[in-house]
Simulated assay, not measured.
Amino acid sequence: MEALEDMRSRHRKEQEDLQSRILQKKKGASKKTRKGVNIECEDLERQLKEKHEAERTVLEGEPPVEVKETPDVDESVSENQSATPLNGVTEALQNSSISEPAQSEDGQTRKRNRQKERLARRAAEQEAALEEAKKEAANQPNSKEIERKKMVEQFEWRRLTEKTIRPDGHCLFSAFADQLSEVGIALSPDGESVREDQRYKVVRQSAARYIETHPDDFVAWLDEPLERYVEKIRDTAEWGGHLELLALSKSYNVEICVIQDGEPQTIEPGTEGAEKICLAYYRHGFGLGEHYNSLRKSP
């Protein structure tokens, strides 16, 4: 069965993949087609959101909804009809009255509780759907193990050693700061030393400053005002991604090689003689979802 946390991780991956697709669509849009592309992207985001909500409903279970009595609809099951039981039918359905009305001790016929019967059937259907989801999840490959194996193979082939970075929302910036220290590039413009637990803050400020001062390079890829986006990158634990790597590459004049499950991604500053650094990017390997680690040269 796909655990709730695994489902959330998968949802985050699907959301990240969708954002990458949207980024490419917007990147290729012209002024004439930008409006249509934005509408298409909004529709894709809506569809993914509805899909995720439906999967959460199946896994977490939907609370019963009160159903009003409908007198003119007869839902009774005759003696000549045979019902096909669902897998995992609950005790509520087994105990519900779906046959002839029962009689009380005084011989009076008791009225069937059709609302109770409907709710019992609904609970049985939900349980059957959950069991089916469990079976499907059990047959899925372990994405975390597959990704880790492929990453380790690349590390060994490239003679790199991985330094694990704390998964706290600042991982990209902390990993980047570690790489700058490895190649001897100062974090701050004035060259002053920075405490290790404060390095990510300096890197965040550098990324935010570059985005803010080069709006034409970034505005087309943002779904919110530039000022608000810059503030989140600078002052919160907002996750960093491709835009931040691009800003850092140009800000510090470094070529960034991102090792991942698949073809490595290279982000170049556009200048000659740039120092090269390496980061590891995971989609499944950590509980919070996507994650960056620092990659150092093996001794």
Rank of each mutant, 00 (worst) to 15 (best):
T161F: 07
L130T: 03
E212C: 03
M1E: 08
N142A: 11
L222N: 02
V73D: 06
L23V: 04
K116M: 11
Q115N: 14
Y200S: 02
R228N: 10
G287W: 03
N253D: 13
C257G: 02
E238W: 08
G28T: 12
E153F: 07
L44Q: 11
V202T: 02
R195G: 15
Q81R: 14
T236W: 07
K201I: 06
D216E: 15
R234S: 07
F218E: 01
Q260N: 09
E16F: 13
K51L: 11
N95S: 13
V37T: 14
L226R: 07
E145L: 12
S78P: 12
T271P: 01
K150L: 08
K25H: 12
V194E: 01
E100Y: 10
S30G: 15
E132W: 04
F286C: 03
Y281D: 01
K150E: 07
E290K: 02
S97L: 14
K116I: 06
R10Q: 09
K35F: 11
Y282K: 00
E132V: 06
R34G: 04
P64K: 10
R121M: 09
S20N: 14
K13E: 08
P85E: 11
L48N: 05
A175C: 06
V194N: 01
P141N: 13
I185R: 02
L180N: 01
G184R: 05
E105Y: 07
E268D: 11
S188Q: 13
I165S: 00
E272D: 15
T266I: 15
P167S: 11
S181D: 15
R56S: 09
K232I: 02
V219S: 11
I146Y: 05
Q198I: 04
E45F: 03
F173D: 00
D217R: 10
E147Y: 05
L279T: 00
L4C: 06
Q126H: 10
S174N: 06
P141E: 12
D43T: 13
K51F: 09
C41Q: 05
R110W: 10
E5Y: 08
Q154D: 07
Q103S: 12
V58W: 04
T109F: 13
G270C: 07
Q265N: 10
D197C: 06
V58C: 13
L279K: 00
L243N: 11
E16G: 05
G287I: 04
D216S: 13
D235R: 13
E162H: 02
G184H: 04
S181W: 04
P85T: 09
S9P: 00
Q205N: 14
Q179I: 00
Q47L: 14
A274Q: 02
A54D: 09
Q81W: 12
Q154K: 15
S251N: 08
P141W: 10
